[in-house]
């Protein structure tokens, strides 16, 4: 090999070494990150030894849940199904909340900046307050029961879905919209014939996904008195009835799995 090529190879090797070398600022950044994480760990009582010793303790607690107390089934199937109803209505209410706000927050639909940003602002408020806090508010307003649970899911997930709807509308193909406008169609006609058909499958898929998430959330709404299986769950845990807890968790798992499978099936059929 010629001397020239050898020199060229060596210079690239040197450049590679230089790129892979640790510089002072790299070390500084890593040190700062580690210091930050140690500070965080300290704040939450996370220490290596205690964390490792917690593993067998936790395993023991889950061990106590086996075998599940099957006889308890007769008491939990009703609240379990109620959980599904709460999630279902939560999803419906979320759509009712999300569609109009989402449309108003999308630039293809509403041309006024003020309207758009206030719709987005409302969605952000709804979204940022967790369903449990909404549930506490609604329980205070309409009393204990599944109904405030559905309202709470409606508000929180309405905010989430509304923003997703708005983003979906923002990202539609603009060609058909322009083509419709060129034919002299009205704003409403453009929405109905050019925007909705494009975004509908996406809306449905968002709804399905957030219904799944909603079912999982609905299982804890009962902890604040907003219906569903959460009340039975928190009671069983407070009473240290671990085998009852085991049955409830198993039931939730079964429910969520079935819904997962169903919604995967529906989504695969949709496209």
């Amino acid at each position: 090999m010629s001397l020239d090529v050898q020199r060229q190879t060596q210079s690239l090797l040197d450049e590679l070494a230089a790129r892979q070398r640790w510089h002072f600022h790299h070390i500084l950044i890593v040190a700062l990150i580690i210091a930050f994480l140690v500070w965080c760990a300290n704040g939450v009582d996370l220490r290596p030894r205690e964390t490792f010793s917690a593993v067998p303790v936790i395993a023991d607690y889950f061990g106590r849940m086996w075998p599940p107390k099957w006889s308890f089934f007769s008491e939990i199937w009703k609240p379990a199904i109620e959980t599904l109803y709460v999630a279902l209505w939560g999803n419906v209410l979320a759509t009712i909340v999300g569609v109009p706000l989402g449309l108003l927050a999308a630039s293809h639909v509403s041309s006024s900046r003020i309207v758009r940003s206030s719709a987005m602002g409302i969605l952000n408020v709804f979204r940022s307050i967790s369903e449990l806090i909404w549930a506490i508010l609604f329980v205070a307003a309409v009393g204990l029961g599944p109904f405030p649970g559905a309202l709470a899911l409606g508000m929180n997930y309405g905010g989430i879905l509304g923003r997703l709807y708005a983003e979906a509308i923002e990202n539609v193909d603009k060609g058909p919209i322009e083509a419709m406008e060129a034919t002299g169609a009205s704003k409403l006609q453009v929405i109905m014939f050019a925007i909705i058909p494009q975004v509908l499958p996406q809306f449905v898929s968002y709804n399905l996904y957030w219904f799944e998430v909603g079912v999982r959330s609905a299982t804890v709404l009962g902890m604040v008195g907003a219906g569903g299986i959460g009340f039975e769950l928190i009671t069983a845990i407070r009473l240290f009835e671990w085998r009852e807890v085991g049955l409830i968790l198993l039931f939730i798992l079964a429910m969520v799995t079935v819904i997962d499978l169903a919604s995967t099936y529906i989504r695969s059929r949709m496209y």
Binding site: I252, L253, T257
Partner: peptide, 11 residues
Amino acid sequence: RAINELVFALI
């Protein structure tokens, strides 16, 4: 995935 953080937290 199926078990909510809050349920884990309770346990």
